[in-house]
């Protein structure tokens, strides 16, 4: 038990923080109910996928600056393909866009491995390339999304045998998030590949000497990141109904949530749960600040200050732990 607590201490602390924030939200706004929770889940969706994309790469010891641009590109691609097309056609669009994310992510990894240019520079260059490609696909926000895709994340999940009051707290968006992440992450975490990803993040040399195919693992890690980013892009199109070629604020948010979620930026440590909880914490803080009727500009300052403070605190804890 104490072992479990020590290993998961950070995530448990985050969950406690999240609960405290929910209670605070109820105090600020007694009417805060299931509907608001649903919209929170919908707002979190693209952020959560961006964070998942960043997490995989950071665990493998890298960083991906092209996450937001990748989301923009996949989002506009999906939106422009679905514009004026039939509902069934969207069934083809979704796998196509996901495959596109996977391939482009793998390209990121391939470039890093082949050119030996630092990952920051490669993904920075890819940020420009993907942004440019997004602008070529759609030069202004536009396109459309299939109705069933939009319906996929709005409303709640009806579970037979449960009273509506509980049902209402299970937004579809949350379910989509959990299913998409679990289907990929849980088998990965338990497989040899997942272990390799942690290994190359922890120590590339040690991993290489124990027979881990470092290059292949790195490429796969970036491919997975691209896949998650494509999910994020789809989520954007699903929630807005259009695609926008200008990347949103997902890069900074993803890095901040990764750090807040207890994933060491050096690589090799942490899991996916922490960063996802961290996204909820960050979004809920924003909701609370809005509910408190604080000027949105001041909200940006407070949000930034919280992120910086949390990151400093986290670094401080790691430093103390090492001594």
């Amino acid at each position: 038990m104490s072992h479990f607590l020590r290993r998961q201490g950070w995530v448990i602390g985050l969950l406690a923080l999240l609960i405290v924030l929910f209670i605070a939200t109820r105090i600020i706004q007694p009417g805060y109910g299931s509907g608001d929770f649903g919209s929170l889940a919908r707002a979190v969706l693209p952020y959560a996928f961006a964070v998942a994309a960043q997490t995989v790469v950071v665990i493998a010891g890298g960083i991906d600056l092209s996450v937001a641009a990748m989301m923009a590109l996949t989002s506009v691609t999906a939106a422009s393909m679905m514009a004026g097309a039939s509902e069934e056609y969207a069934l083809l669009v979704v796998p196509f866009v996901l495959a596109m994310g996977l391939v482009l992510g793998a390209l990121n990894g391939l470039l890093i491995v082949v050119t030996r240019v630092p990952d920051i520079v490669v993904t920075l260059a890819m940020l420009f390339v993907l942004q440019g490609a997004a602008l070529l696909v759609l030069d202004a926000p536009g396109g459309a999304a299939a109705e069933w895709l939009k319906a996929l994340i709005s409303g709640t999940v009806p579970i037979p045998g449960l009273p509506d009051a509980i049902d209402a707290w299970l937004p579809k968006a949350l379910l989509v998030l959990v299913v998409c992440l679990c289907v990929i992450w849980v088998p990965l975490r338990r497989s040899r590949l997942g272990l390799s990803i942690y290994a190359i993040g922890s120590s590339e040399l040690a991993a290489f000497r124990s027979g881990v195919p470092v290059k292949r693992t790195r490429i796969i890690a970036y491919a997975l990141s691209g896949l998650f980013a494509a999910f994020g892009g789809l989520a954007l199109t699903m929630s807005t109904g259009i695609g926008a070629p200008i990347p949103g604020p997902y890069l900074l948010a993803s890095v901040a949530a990764v750090v807040l979620g207890g994933v060491a930026l050096g690589g090799g440590k942490g899991g996916l749960l922490g960063p996802i909880v961290a996204v909820f914490v960050l979004r809920l803080v924003r909701t609370d600040l809005t509910l408190l009727a604080i000027d949105p500009n001041v909200t940006a300052i407070i949000e930034g200050a919280i992120m910086v403070a949390v990151v400093m605190f986290g670094a401080f804890i790691t430093m103390r732990g090492r001594q």
Partner: peptide
């Protein structure tokens, strides 16, 4: 603009 950014990258 898009092609310019791609080339730049």
């Amino acid at each position: 603009e898009g092609a310019r950014r791609i080339l730049f990258g």
